[in-house]
Design a binder for these strands. Structure first.
Length: 275
DNA sequence: AACGCAATCAACCGCCTCAAA
DNA sequence: ATTTGAGGCGGTTGATTGCGT
């Protein structure tokens, strides 16, 4: 089915113009050409078992896609290390996995990102930085690779803009909140710049907010002191968990997203918006 | 039509973590 | 305690595509 090629025993390379990791004069470097790619060459990701094989690289053919789809559908859940063998593919496990998770998985959403998704990516990137898989986890049907590519090709162009609005990813840290509770202005400790603005919710959402705060009061892990922000004009020292919900980082993010209403009014802002 | 440049994105690379041996 | 294998991740590359000249 695939071309075979006898590799050099020393270098393991399939092309006479290529060498092993040590390289050397006259040796071609950089991306493998299409022509070279028709040869089957070594794969650095491979396991010991795979080491005995000559693994294909480069663009996937329709035939390979079909084999991989068939294999996953038939054997799922399956160990990726077994996929090449089961599928009859001369690809390494990692290549198979990547092809599936980034392209073949039927749950993957194709097409351009809409405004909502874009907005969500910006907000999540502000919170999480370049943790693409976490971000992808909150955009159904989108892969980490797609989001990363989209960020790098589209959103990073607006980086200057974004950076004016977002000073840094939010990290749990104690802050002092001002007396004006119609909105909260949080400041980075020791710095003057406010990093975000949000409104304290009212009505039922306010009750939810207070419950969350009260619950967290009794959590010995919390490092902040707490006053009821709506009950008085006192200052209160908070950790960001207080705003986002107490727990692991992920659940904090969930709190932001699920608590729409509680926190949907999170607003990125620049200096011109500061009172 | 031909060329050059920029943008896009699939795929590769190297590293990390974790579990099992 | 150490080694090994597997899965997963973010960064990067380079082929392809699109667009302007």
């Amino acid at each position: 089915m695939f071309q075979t090629f006898i590799a050099s025993a020393n270098t393991g390379t399939a092309s006479p113009t290529r060498a092993g990791s040590s390289g050397g004069p006259g040796v071609r470097k950089g991306r493998w050409s299409k022509e070279e790619d028709t040869h089957i060459r070594r794969d650095q990701w491979r396991s010991k078992e795979e080491d005995t094989l000559l693994i294909r690289k480069g663009q996937w053919s329709e035939e390979e896609d079909t084999l991989l789809r068939k294999c996953i559908n038939q054997y799922s859940p399956v160990k990726w290390s077994q996929v090449p063998k089961l599928a009859g593919l001369n690809r390494c496990r990692k290549s198979c996995r990547l092809r599936w998770v980034n392209y073949l998985d039927p749950s993957i959403k194709r097409g351009s990102f809409n405004e909502d998704e874009e907005d969500l990516i910006i907000r999540l990137h502000k919170l999480l930085g370049n943790r693409w898989s976490l971000i992808a986890g909150r955009l159904p049907g989108r892969t980490a690779n797609d989001i990363k590519n989209y960020w790098n090709s589209h959103l990073s162009k607006r980086k200057v803009n974004v950076e004016q609005r977002i000073l840094e990813p939010i990290r749990p840290k104690p802050v002092t909140l001002p007396q004006n509770w119609s909105w909260l202005r949080m400041k980075k400790q020791g710095e003057a710049e406010p990093i975000m603005e949000t409104k304290v919710p009212d009505g039922e959402e306010h009750d939810q907010w207070l419950r969350m705060i009260n619950d967290s009061k009794h959590d010995p892990e919390n490092y902040y002191t707490l006053n009821d922000p709506m009950a008085s004009n006192q200052h209160a020292d908070f950790g960001f968990e207080c705003v986002y919900g107490v727990g692991e980082e992920e659940s904090n993010v969930d709190a932001i997203l699920q608590g729409d209403g509680l926190l949907s009014d999170i607003k990125l802002w620049n200096d011109s918006e500061v009172e």
